[in-house]
Amino acid sequence: MALLELEHAAFSYDGHCAVSGLSFLLEDADYLCVVGENGSGKSTLVKGMLGQLEPSAGAIRRSALLKRGSIGYLPQQHALQKNFPASVEEVVLSGRLAKKKLFSFYTSADRRAALNALATLGAAELLKARYGELSGGQQQRVLLARALAVGHEDLKLLILDEPMNGLDPLIKRELYDLIETLNREQQIAIVMVSHDVKAAVNFAKNILYLDSRQEYYGNAHAFSHTAVGQELIRDSCSDNCAICGLHRETE
């Protein structure tokens, strides 16, 4: 069975129907990029996938593998977080709370899992650093480590909400590579919400395109040959040059 299956699902937020009639499958170790304009319902869909929103119509089915602590989540970073007084260890450890009971404290196993998550992303040396003093790219790595620390060995799905926002092209490229490695080597399914259609087509296996007029769900390479895909790739910002050409070509 697929990890997630949406069948004619609709999600509403604040009484407003954000997405409707959505059907797609998310297979084990899949890599799905959700693209679309602002307000097309991408973040609402993420809340639905995380189980924070029930569908107002249709159905969403989750595999038994997706139990508590098997979904890692990287939300959009808020401005307040950038200078937040916290150590990297405090931030990454907070990912472990998903598996912990209400009145419990961190154990040595939790600290090991946090360090392992950082080491997986090549950032173990940041453990004792101050979060607010890190660069944007390092902060995203730390938040990604927090998402991994949620389940670590049990992690089946990683949901990333616009993780590349505000990063420079080379850092973006590094993060895309890291995410691809997690998907390929650790068989973690990825759902990434992105505005960057060009990179999405380059890295993802499947694309879900949300728009008020039309929707697309299917193979990423095939999407790049559709009229809307071509138009969106053309409109993609030029700072993807560091990303394009280093992976399979789309044009």
Binding site: P75, H78, S94, Y106
Partner: peptide, 20 residues
């Protein structure tokens, strides 16, 4: 609730998604 207060203060969206 110290660790949970930290989690909610630092990132409410993540805390909510983690089941807190």
């Amino acid at each position: 609730l110290y660790h949970r207060i930290f989690a909610v203060t630092f990132d409410q969206d993540f805390a909510a998604a983690s089941g807190m």
